[in-house]
Design a protein around this nucleic acid. Sequence first.
DNA 1: CCCTGATTCGC
DNA 2: GCGAATCAGG
Length: 194
Amino acid sequence: MSWTDERVELLKKMWGEGQSASQIAKELGGVTRNAVIGKVHRLGLSNRTTPNKADAKPKAEPKAKPTPKPKVAVKPAPAPEPKPEPKTEPAVPQKPAMSAARRAIIPAGQPLPPQPSANEISPEALAKVNEVEKTAKKLSLMELTEHTCKWPVGDPATDEFWFCGLNVQAGKPYCEAHVGVAFQPMSSRRDRKR
DNA sequence: CCCTGATTCGC
DNA sequence: GCGAATCAGG
């Protein structure tokens, strides 16, 4: 498959929405996530994370590469590199780096977000959650591990309480569906006609 | 081990 | 330009 205009457009759209490369690749079909990532980089919209390191990493060579680099050039100019980064952040709910004092106010660990009730969440995300709750592993608190979704379902005061327990998304405490409702990346008001 | 994106480099 | 292999990390 080649990168037609439509495919590139879909790629940009999904990437802009915060979809993962593998999801995009799956949606596009015929490409791997590596291809998607490569294309993303080539398109120049790879700034999702801050790859800002003090200096370039030498990148450990995995294979015996005939690198005829006798280490000659010594960078004379450090190049301050101002990073304005005027990217259009879709209000990504990153960890609110609150001060230590501020954090100390919080009584106990309650990392669990509010249940999706009155919250305005995408209907699709809600539907996905509702569906995933049917296939949830329904783990108890003791059964939770680092890679089980820790989304609570039901009332803790009831015996109908359990945790989702599905495979978590990389790095996140929840599975994909619950990540979708826990972190609402973009405004739910996508269309308002006036 | 699952996943994520980032980078390199032969094609 | 493309993307597999690889790196680096959660």
